[in-house]
Design a binder for these strands. Sequence first.
DNA 1: ATGCCTGCAAAGCTTTTGCAGATGC
DNA 2: GCATCTGCAAAAGCTTTGCAGGCAT
Lengths: 139, 139
Amino acid sequence: MEQRQELRNAGLKITLPRLKILEILEGNQQRHKSAEDIYKELLNANEDIGLATVYRVLTQFESAGLVTRHNFEGGHSVFEIDDGKHHDHMVCVDSGEVVEFVSDEIERLQAEVAAQHGYELLDHSLVLYVKKIAGANSD
Amino acid sequence: MEQRQELRNAGLKITLPRLKILEILEGNQQRHKSAEDIYKELLNANEDIGLATVYRVLTQFESAGLVTRHNFEGGHSVFEIDDGKHHDHMVCVDSGEVVEFVSDEIERLQAEVAAQHGYELLDHSLVLYVKKIAGANSD
DNA sequence: ATGCCTGCAAAGCTTTTGCAGATGC
DNA sequence: GCATCTGCAAAAGCTTTGCAGGCAT
């Protein structure tokens, strides 16, 4: 029940919808969820929370730095708990599976490239679209 | 007037809307345009072409490999002529300016990272969000 | 009690689709 | 002449907003 404190720190009142949504986001199943995904999980849990509220809460969480919003291909956004550890994503085009990874070298090169063009790197978005190699172990 | 041939190669009938849209995409002003941008340019040029047609044509062009669609942050797509030369993008958060760049090293590292996880790299999307360094020359 | 929060429904935005008429070949 | 293409308008999909009531503090 540490979530109450997270909400408090974010300057948000502790309400049932926010607790439930935070709980779902912290669940260890799928880390990357769309608003719709969350809405469905709430329905399954018999929580009477509107889709509009899900969106509002997610936006508030984003402003508060609790979650990160990603715009993968396909029009809709997905959200993920922001634990402070930066990483990029790899999406399997067959299964839709999302794998997180970090490459310090890529990070460094990005800053370097930006600098070469006279820019300071503020942020970046890197998504690899991949496909499982037959017969390979996935890690 | 080489555009007719490009359309033909793509298996598309030569029509006024397609010619005009291709022409705009090949214009040397802004390389990255949204459907709306193109629609506005058509209106300015007094061409009587509907927005729906712009979308349809862009989708056809994309299938034909004539253009590439990017989903930068912000909900709407931008299109760019596909000249076969792969590159990534750097977007200035202040001016909205878009700079293209290629880093062979980053490309190589991406494939490497994917392989380490048992995946084959099919495609990727890399966007750097940057800010001009005061007093630096921009190249 | 007060002010922030929620649910519902309606609107907003980008993109897609249906249909009848127009156009290219 | 026939199939493909276009314009218009309406619909679709995701997300946001307005409003009246509800809940946390």
